[in-house]
Amino acid sequence: MEIEVKNIEETKVAYVSVTGSYEQLPELFGEVVGYVMKDNLQVTEPPYGIYFNNPMEVPQEELKYEIGIAFIGDADGEDRVKIKNVPAHQAVSTIYKGPYGQAAQIYQALVEYTMKNGYEINGAVKEIYLNNPMEVDESELLTEVRFPVIKKS
């Protein structure tokens, strides 16, 4: 597994913030992707999920997460889909290959890399889904896993 610290440029995203079960994920991805397609926005990165708490520590109905997609263009959002700018930042990152539900197994390696290299994590984990589960076997799914970091002073 190759781990690196990346410089992430400022991006504009369409997103939905959710509290509740991960069973809603397919519908939420459809909602966000449908919004950017309907408004003919230029997508700059595959869809992502940011996960704010741990399903091993809180009940399903208390899970907090954000589903979104980065784009270029002008948009105001609608219904549950909101728009925001994500500032430029650094992130420790790696690519995981395999079923989505098992990507969390590499979180610890990212945390250890962060600590060993003089960084600290300053935000929630982001998973970027690089290919489509409708097009490849789950063993071939690629997920970029990122933690935002800052250099320790």
Rank of each mutant, 00 (worst) to 15 (best):
E10Y: 08
A109K: 15
Q105R: 12
K97Y: 07
M134W: 03
N132Q: 06
I3Y: 00
R80P: 05
N117P: 07
Q42A: 14
G30E: 02
K152L: 15
E62V: 07
E135A: 11
V81R: 13
E45F: 06
R146I: 02
G118R: 03
E10H: 08
D137K: 14
A14G: 11
P148N: 01
A14L: 12
E62I: 07
E138H: 09
G49R: 00
S93F: 12
I95N: 11
V136I: 10
P99C: 04
G20A: 08
A124W: 05
M134I: 00
Y48R: 03
I69W: 12
V92D: 12
G20L: 06
I128W: 07
V5M: 00
E62L: 10
E9D: 15
K64Y: 08
K64C: 10
M115L: 07
L141V: 02
K38R: 14
S21E: 10
Q90F: 10
E144R: 09
E127I: 05
M56W: 06
K12L: 12
N7W: 08
T44P: 05
L63S: 12
P148H: 01
L63G: 11
V92F: 11
N117C: 04
T19D: 06
I8G: 10
I3G: 01
T143E: 03
I8L: 15
Q102T: 04
G77H: 13
V145S: 00
A104E: 13
F29C: 01
G118I: 01
K6I: 02
S139G: 09
K126H: 08
